[in-house]
Design a binder for these strands. Structure first.
Lengths: 184, 184
DNA sequence: CGACTTTACTTAACGGCGTTAAATTGTCAA
DNA sequence: TTGACAATTTAACGCCGTTAAGTAAAGTCG
């Protein structure tokens, strides 16, 4: 395991370094060379652990989604579950620079991995949702949240706009409107 | 005007060529060299008309937004105006490959141009909305629509998922839920 | 008409990017 | 001791956005 170097890198350390790089330099700052340098390694070494950059971005996206979903573990009904999903993902996305943009450019995962969306929505089944209805409701909440995150990232520069209305409050208001309709 | 070449290029022809290139090759296919080739010109010639690639993308984004808004010209009330805004933008975004991703990576326009969002939301004022409430409502509808477009672009490859529920119908259902709450 | 400026392009080049190929080195099993 | 294997290195390729410098046509003006 340990080789020339005291500690070697693996997918997990690469992933964490990538998020660190994202927060410090933004999405454009994520280059294979910069990421490698942060791990005290040459760029091609990364390709032993990761197929290509697109896979790395997909890994990061998946990590963000899963962290967002953890927020709705103890939800007692469909309404609170969907609210927690939206707010959880929102919290995760606001916690990383350019996180919305990252999700936007992330290539879809492998076909086998597309089942993730299905697994994610599964808890809704417990509350009596059909698979189709669960996927629908989840898609609506995730769409609103991702779109909102992008809006926020883009508006960050135009402070003038943000002084005219509270974007965060707008989300807090809009999400329940959508969710209430979805569970009705 | 006309010089060495019979017809010269300008911002408008560049913009149209860029959308053509987008539809044929996707967002990754939009390179300054490919765009120039499509106009029978060398790449650096583009920089006479456009500051850099980011400005080109911003131009395309603005064009998409404005085309989306044209849909809600004849709306009689706030509800139908917001519905038309969402559906109009949705129609425009589904009409171009990777249009959602393009909006997501487009850098915010110049500060002076940030007033565009304000101008866009202005018609809502006629229906009795305050500026803040109009911007809020518009942000919610645009967020849902952009997020939905991204969802759709990413899910396009995972046909398996799409066979389990109707994403378009999901949007048609979710948008009124949000809008009804916003105008209440 | 001829000199000068301006417009709109060309060619050439730079540095950085993602990625691949090949060589290299340390570790472990037989 | 040897040989397979894991994990990295060095070197390089082609493409990217972008800049610098040169150049030809068109407009301006004495």
């Amino acid at each position: 395991m340990a080789r020339l170097r005291d500690i070697s890198i693996d997918r997990e350390t690469i992933l964490r370094a990538a998020f660190g790089l994202l927060d410090e330099t933004g999405l454009d700052g994520i280059t294979m060379r910069a990421l490698a340098a942060r791990l005290s390694v040459q760029a091609p070494a990364l390709y032993w652990h990761v197929k290509d950059k697109a896979e790395l971005i997909a890994m990061m996206a998946q990590d963000l989604y899963l962290r967002g979903r953890e927020e709705c573990r103890g939800s007692a009904d469909a309404r609170s579950w969907l609210l927690a999903l939206g707010q959880g993902l929102r919290r995760v996305l606001t916690g990383h620079r350019d996180a919305g943009r990252l999700l936007a450019i992330a290539r879809p995962l492998t076909p086998a991995d597309a089942a993730l969306a299905e697994r994610m929505a599964a808890p809704l089944g417990v509350f009596g949702f059909s698979v189709a209805r669960a996927l629908e409701a989840q898609a609506a909440v995730l769409s609103l949240t991702l779109g909102w995150a992008l809006y926020r990232e883009n508006a960050a520069m135009a402070e003038h706009l943000l002084r005219m209305f509270d974007l965060d409050a707008s989300y807090e208001k809009g999400l329940p409107l959508l969710v209430d309709g979805l569970v009705a």
